[in-house]
């Protein structure tokens, strides 16, 4: 029980200003290890900015980020990646003119320590290829290894995006809207990948997502952001029944959500 309470990632009083605009205001979140923690909120609530602060893409105006108790606030993104924090992007962020295999192989090579073997052929390092092939199968891109990433369909690109992150075998995975732009039929396959990640037992996922049904069903905890600040935090059930959240975010559209969640969990 004690290990369940282990805090793996923590944001403390984070604040980010872009000129006069305050994108994230005094946000403190604690992410427990081996849980799926979702961050929701309407567009412009500061979710992606928070992600950028956690993964080192942006530096906060104030506040700190701790990973396993270590202050990582001012580490550059590539150092943070080395610590075991992976990140996928809302807007697909891949290597368009490289093959699917090479996209993922690069990511698995990144943390392997053979990056400066200038005079050895990369094909000599079979372990990275093996790892990449394994990940390709995992995310369901088998058979497309040799295709250029830019020739993939949108849903496949989203899977590749996930694969690039998974290849580095991170402990904490920051997923920024993995289903962005996907049709409803494509979502179950992605959900399955997320489930399989959690089933590994040692991964922590932080998820930003707009599909409320998905968030409600897979999250252990949910943090709600609104206008750059924190609005609420709790279990899916608590969030669904939270009156402030409902008025600020869920609105009438999800008015019957409380009932369905209660029915499911009660």
């Amino acid at each position: 029980m004690n290990s369940d309470r282990e805090i793996i990632l923590e944001a403390k009083n984070l604040r980010k200003e872009f000129g006069g605009l305050v994108a994230v205001e005094d946000v403190s979140v604690q992410i427990q290890a081996r849980t799926l923690h979702s961050i929701i909120g309407p567009n412009g609530a500061g979710k992606t900015t928070l992600f950028n602060l956690l993964s080192g893409v942006l530096k906060p105006t104030r506040g700190f980020v701790y990973f396993k108790g270590q202050d990582i606030t001012h580490l550059p993104p590539h150092r943070i990646a080395h610590l075991g924090i992976g990140r996928s992007f809302q807007i697909t962020n891949i290597f368009p003119n490289l093959t699917v295999l090479e996209n993922i192989r690069l990511a698995s090579q990144a943390l392997g320590g053979d990056n400066f073997r200038l005079l050895k052929a990369s094909s000599d390092f079979q372990k990275y290829v093996d790892k990449a092939l394994q990940v390709i199968e995992w995310v369901g891109l088998k058979g497309r290894e040799a295709d250029l990433a830019r020739n993939l369909a949108h849903g496949e690109k989203r899977k590749l995006e996930l694969g690039i992150m998974l290849a580095a075998d991170p402990q904490v995975l920051l997923l920024d809207e993995p289903t962005a732009g996907m049709s409803s039929e494509q979502v179950p396959a992605l959900l399955e990948i997320i489930h399989s990640i959690m089933n590994l037992g040692d991964k922590t996922i932080i998820l930003v997502e707009h599909r409320m049904d998905m968030v409600m069903s897979i999250s252990d905890r949910i943090t709600v952001m609104h206008l750059g600040g924190l609005l609420a935090e709790g279990t899916p059930q608590e969030i669904a029944s939270n009156q402030t959240v409902q008025t600020a975010y869920l609105g009438d559209l999800y008015g019957d959500l409380t009932e369905s969640m209660e029915g499911k969990n009660g």
């Binding site: 993964s55 893409v57 550059p76 993104p77 590539h78 990646a81 080395h82 992976g86 990140r87 992007f89 962020n93 891949i94 290597f95 690069l106 990511a107 990144a110 943390l111 990056n115 690039i164 992150m165 290849a167 580095a168």
Partner: peptide, 9 residues
């Protein structure tokens, strides 16, 4: 940018 995010400087 992605190169940076997967851990290369």
């Amino acid at each position: 940018n992605r190169v940076r995010m997967i851990g290369f400087n």
